[in-house]
Each structure stands twice: as structure tokens, then as C-alpha cells.
Amino acid sequence: MASYNTSEFRAGLKIILDGDPYTIVENEFVKPGKGQAFNRTRVRNLKTGRVIEKTFKSGDSVEAADVVDTDMQYLYTDGEMWHFMVPDTFEQYAADAAAVGDNAKWLKEQDMCVVTLWNGVPLDIAPPNHVTLKVVETDPGLRGDTSSGGSKPAKLETGAVVKVPLFVNEGEVIKVDTRTGEYISRVKE
């Protein structure tokens, strides 16, 4: 089984602790001049997102987590699972609600996503930073008002609700930043 020695520790390294996959967020080597050395770390649980403090005796080894990020195309959801495909190989993977989480609201069929696989099973998914989605529901726009100013909620085709400028109308397509959930611009189809 692959493992990492504490001397290989760095931010971003994926390891297994108590059966769960973690990523190292911070690593600091501490050692009293004449004493035992330790690696003091902060690690994020890749299943729960929770960050905890963990200290290792320097020189110890920790099991490596088989965690890889893979670009995949989002295909569809059957209501229970979200299905993705690796374009080159046509290999398909099904992610459950725990893996997809809140990001379900940004998933549009055909879009390319990053799927984090742990032992070949989707653990987490990241939608594209920018998605273009159709507005399916919003209050009528104010004719002629194309300046910035007020905003209003708009429901998008994937179910996400974002704040948009008053001039955006139903049926229009907009670009949204999925990291912040903020409207960027209208898109001409």
C-alpha cells in the first residue's frame, strides 16, 4: 500500500486517517533542539469538509489516499444519482447526493466538471467556474433600464436562484460564477 513519510508532507497531499480521505492544508515541522521532532498539520476531511488539527511524529509514515481529480462530462441525473462520463474513454461514474452536494444546482447536461475519485468512486464534484444557464423564472424587467442599479432573484434552468440586474428577462441566458453564485453577464445565443 502506498504511503507518505512525514518528510514528504506538503499542502495538497492526500492521505487516509481513521479510514477517511484527507487533504493536508498546512504542515509545520516543529522540533525542540534536543527533542523529538513532530509535523504539526491541519487536514481537511474530503468527505465532510471539516478541518482538524493533527500532529505526527516526524519520520512516521501515513497511508496515501488514492484520490485523483478527473475531467468528466455531466450526463444526467435520475433523481438519485448524478451520472458523469470521461470523454476519452466513455467510462461512466455515478455520484451520490453526498458527493454532489450543493453543486447539483449548477449541473447542466454536457458541461465539463472535475470529479474527485477516491478508490474509483466519486467523492466530490466541482462544476466549471463559469456556467451559462437560462433564466426560467423572474419578475418582468423594466423596459429600457440597462444600467446597473437594483437587482432581483431569478430562477435558472438547473434550479439555482441567483440575483440578477433588473433588465434581465425570462428566457434569456446568463453567465454565473459558481464559486460565488454571482451573476456575471448576459449571453447572446
Binding site: 516543529v30 525542540p32 527533542g35 523529538q36 504539526r40 500532529t55
Partner: peptide, 11 residues
Amino acid sequence: RDALLDAIASH
């Protein structure tokens, strides 16, 4: 025991 004391000292 000394290693435990070193850990406590460092933290």
C-alpha cells in the same frame, strides 16, 4: 515520556 513532554512543550 520525554517525547510526550517535547510534544507538550512544542504545542
